[in-house]
Design a protein around this nucleic acid. Structure first.
Lengths: 189, 189
DNA sequence: TGTACATCAGTGAACGCGCGTTCACTGATGTAC
DNA sequence: TGTACATCAGTGAACGCGCGTTCACTGATGTAC
């Protein structure tokens, strides 16, 4: 059944988007290609018309997720108080409860590190994020160092808030980290 | 082949220790029971003489890892400058390169959160760690908040330093976070 | 414009593999007499 | 002290399952005449 010119590109994109969501929500190992294709109304055999292997999809999906996230971040950075706005978004209960649409670092960094040959997206992603934070700090004298600490705290706090069962403790982690980071940002600027 | 009185307890302990190491190094899903038992010179069938299921082992191994880690932490806290000593240990290249003997949070928090029914060890572990940090801060007025930020930064920085490929960037994350946290500790005290 | 053909995205059965788990068994050692 | 028996930690084949991957195929549509 031959389809219109851009049909394949559209399907390709649907697979990438769905995979990017599942990888972040469930992890790479726990995401099966069969259920993934089924969720899109397709059969698993067709997968290999789009990707060389699961690893190929992982790389493509992670790039897509990173790119998508950069745009979400830029939206926050476009607000009047860019850093405050970004910190509020990153450490919001919404972000905590929607890993499938959020930052890949807290969900996938550990698994990517454990895999045999991790893709360079982590390095590039971390460097980009650090550079973006440093820029938002208006390149203050110690902006480079502050950005490393900030990113670590952001990722760590979100990870902890997600792994804890007690809703009160989870919220306490988010709120405390959010408040402290905004204070820290003000001190630097 | 009947063994001496405490032989079974010893084998049980060996399985727990090996599992605690593998779960932290490779993740839970990637750790097979067959390879695990083989590494101990046993066959996989005997596993069920010791544990009800893999989940049972996961719970036991995580408790063991947490307990073991608490002792390592206390060693650091026993030094002249307890907080500095602890921060130096946690964010050392040694800890980064030995996840199998280190803190379970950076390696396993994401996977535990993604599992269906995570054990309460995360909550208890996080609370314990927070309380220990607050105590080390001599219960300064905002020690409760500082401890949350500290733990987030510790976990986040270690996670990032592990997931990055570039050794220079990895070391930069560790060094920067270590320096900033020690400064932060001094400010509070 | 109408027909024959080529294309190729998607189908679905099949593959080998390792997983967690089960189970009938073995056989060295502690215990009972 | 010597012998018969019970115990039970560990053995290893087998189970069903879902995984990633392969492949001969289908059939609607674009293209050539």
């Amino acid at each position: 059944m031959r389809y219109s010119a851009d049909h394949k590109a559209q399907t390709h994109d649907r697979i990438v988007k769905e995979a990017a969501a599942r990888f972040r929500r469930d992890g790479i190992a726990a995401t099966g290609l069969q259920p993934l294709m089924k969720a899109l109304g397709l059969t698993h055999g067709g997968f290999y018309a789009h990707f060389k292997s699961k690893d190929d999809l992982v790389e493509t999906a992670l790039l897509s997720a990173t790119e998508e996230l950069t745009q979400v971040c830029e939206k926050a950075f476009a607000n009047p108080q860019p850093l405050h706005s970004f910190i509020d978004t990153y450490l919001s209960p919404t972000h905590r409860d929607s890993p499938e649409r959020g930052c890949p670092l807290p969900t996938m960094a550990a698994e990517l590190g454990q895999r045999g040959q991790p893709s360079p997206i982590t390095d590039q992603g971390v460097e980009d994020r650090l550079a973006r934070l440093a820029a938002a700090l208006h390149n203050a004298p110690n902006a480079d160092e502050q950005s490393v600490v900030m990113l670590s705290t952001l990722v760590g706090a979100l990870l902890l808030s997600r792994s804890v069962q007690d809703p009160q403790l989870s919220l306490r982690i988010l709120d405390t980290a959010r408040k402290a980071l905004k204070q820290q940002a003000d001190d630097v600027l």
